[in-house]
Design a protein around this nucleic acid. Structure first.
Length: 553
RNA sequence: UGGGUUAUAGUGUAACGGUAGCACUACAGAUUUUGAUUCUGUCCGUCUAGGUUCGAAUCCUAGUAACCCAACCA
């Protein structure tokens, strides 16, 4: 038996090495979101990586909210983040908050001051920026850089006690104003913000910066592998500097390339703009790349996990085709979706030789597994898809056209005998005769047809609303265009169909079940549905060989 | 123009000095009561130039390109 061995990504290699040589007995990772927005598919990559490592190597993973900036953070985001991580199928060992550590962080800052490695700076933001220099020119010392330890201690305590206004003073680490790494040029580690915090309330008026909170929180929790994205590479040196100077648990930082995907944007700032400017209806608008948006759209947790597995983990910048995500969701839904019939763009098919008032119940397979069936009622008048009839058939056309025959899925073969048109030339009805001996499952007609189409009985049909989604942006890389990214939004990303007829079995449709509208795609019920109105979202279309055939001409 | 990171088919990702493989996409075909699924096949790649070696995607040298860093954001 050939064993197919999946190769390790570079972080798994590091973990295996650390475990093998006894550096650690078990590993501890963490997923550290800032609660200032909803999670998106890029976060899913990080979640799958961090929690996946814990699972794969018998370790644990904490969920830690990096809540050090009270002005942008909110419990609404905390709640959504927890829901999304759980929905993706992961359980955290502990739910922590950087704000849990504010007292310890304050103590660590005092320790740094005492060691002569931090000072209070009264300079304005502009002065600090000017003195910082540029990547090609070294910075210069602030005049406050050499304050005594005692004075720094006194000033820092006063900062904590609210003696100064926002922005009046900051606490800076004393590193090296000439360092080639800009982040080592005496980084700010505490600032004054008299703002209400979602968890600590008004207890604090100084808050630590990312660099003096993230690594220290990792250390407090004894995180072994602190995994973040590439843009934090310049912080790595500082991360290690604090650990060394503070002599705390040596967590190690590793960086991987964040996920980028075609036809969408992946920055919380931009996504927030789309929500605020009403280009989408909400964070969970089905067009959004957010976890909640994808969930509402009908993507499964399984498909997103598979996607994250397929894209891999590496250090080079990447741009993943949206079609890979579509492939993953089709792959999963094909196995699980209930097959049903729905006519999105209805036109009437009248079976002239079928008795008035007669109905028949047909069994139709509702899943991929043999034996799963549901009952679909049939009658003289049916709704069929407008695009399944062509007055003048195209080449290789094997659906309905004058004189042509098709199979009505799970029912009879019908032959088109004519059609009706209105004054504008639009087809208003198609006429056909059915072949009684061609009944599905007991066909003795001897006729074989190439095409099979779906249908819904007019008298049994249930009216529904269907929302079709297309890519959010009309260009592959909205981030890499000139001008505002919003200029590249796809105006046709949402199409609402108000007159869709679905088969009666869908009256009991529920939010948890994925459906395949045969030949049309995968759909799910939207939470906007009510007792008297069904609303479906199209998750993704089916692959469509015919559409490609047409495009070729 | 300082520092850092990265370069393998159209897009991702393997190969750890020894046959450049896998997935998606694209294309062609078989099967099909979903033009779906399934199955078969095809196209396409080691950033460049030198060097080391029996042998280089991998090691060395020199280039080139892309991305990140000058928020009291994370």
């Amino acid at each position: 038996m050939m064993s197919e061995e999946k190769s390790l990504n570079f972080i798994e290699e590091i973990v295996e090495e650390d475990l093998k040589n006894g550096k650690y007995k078990t590993i501890l990772t963490r997923f550290p979101p800032e609660p200032n927005g909803y999670l998106h598919i890029g976060h899913a990559k990080s979640i799958c990586l961090n929690f996946g490592l814990g699972l794969k190597y018998g370790g644990k993973t904490n969920l830690r909210f990096d809540d050090t900036n009270p002005v942008t953070e909110d419990t609404e985001y905390v709640d959504s983040i927890k829901e999304d991580v759980q929905w993706l199928g992961f359980n955290w060992a502990n739910e922590f908050y950087a704000s849990d550590y504010f007292d310890q962080l304050y103590t660590l800052a005092v320790k740094l001051i005492t060691a002569g490695l931090a000072y209070v700076d009264d300079s304005t933001a502009e002065e600090i920026a000017t003195l910082k220099g540029t990547p090609t020119e070294p910075g210069m010392d602030s005049v406050y850089r050499n304050r005594s330890v005692a004075e720094n201690l006194d000033l820092f305590e006063k900062m904590k006690n609210g003696a100064f206004a926002d922005g009046a003073k900051v606490l800076r680490a004393k590193v090296d104003m000439a360092a080639p790494n800009m982040h080592m040029r005496d980084p700010i580690i505490y600032r004054i913000k008299k703002a209400h915090h979602h968890r600590t309330g008004d207890k604090w008026c100084i808050y630590p910066m990312y660099d003096f909170a993230h690594g220290q929180s990792d250390s407090i929790e004894n995180i072994t592998h602190s995994i973040c994205t590439l843009e934090f590479i310049p912080h790595h040196q500082l991360y290690d500097w604090f650990i060394e100077k503070l002599n705390i648990f040596p967590s190690k930082q590793y960086e991987f390339a964040r996920l980028n995907m075609t036809y969408t944007v992946m920055s919380k700032r931009k996504l927030l703009q789309l929500v605020n400017d009403k280009h989408v209806q909400s964070w969970d608008d089905p067009r959004m790349p957010t976890i909640s948006g994808l969930r509402r759209r009908g993507f499964t947790a399984e498909s997103i996990r598979n996607f994250c597995d397929k894209i891999g983990v590496a250090k080079r910048d990447n741009m993943i085709d949206f079609s890979l995500l579509e492939f993953c969701v089709r792959e999963d839904l094909n196995k699980t979706a209930q097959r049903v019939m729905a006519v999105l763009d209805p036109v009437k098919l009248i079976i002239t030789n079928y008795p008035d008032g007669q109905t028949e119940d047909f069994n139709s397979e509702s899943g991929l597994e043999a034996g799963e069936t549901r009952i679909v009622p049939f009658s003289k008048e049916l709704w069929i898809e407008r695009e399944d009839f062509m007055e003048v058939p195209a080449k290789k056309w094997f659906r309905l056209a004058p004189g042509a025959a098709v199979r009505l899925k799970s029912a009879y073969i019908v032959k088109c005998e004519g059609f009706e048109k209105d004054a504008n030339g639009n087809v208003t009805a198609v006429h056909a005769t059915y072949i009684p001996e061609s009944k599905s499952g007991s066909d003795t007609s001897g006729i074989s047809v190439k095409g099979t189409i779906h249908w819904v009985s007019v008298q049994h049909a249930v009216k529904a609303e269907v929302r079709l989604y297309d890519r959010l942006f009309k260009v592959e890389e909205p981030d890499n265009q000139t001008g505002d990214f919003k200029e590249y939004l796809n105006p046709d990303s949402l199409q609402v169909l108000n007159t869709v007829y679905v088969e009666p079995s869908l009256k009991t449709a529920d939010l948890a079940t994925p459906y395949q509208f045969i030949r049309k795609g995968y759909f799910c019920l939207d939470r906007d549905s009510s007792a008297d109105k069904l609303v479906f979202n199209r998750t993704v279309t089916l692959k469509d060989a015919w559409a490609k055939e047409i495009k070729k001409n």
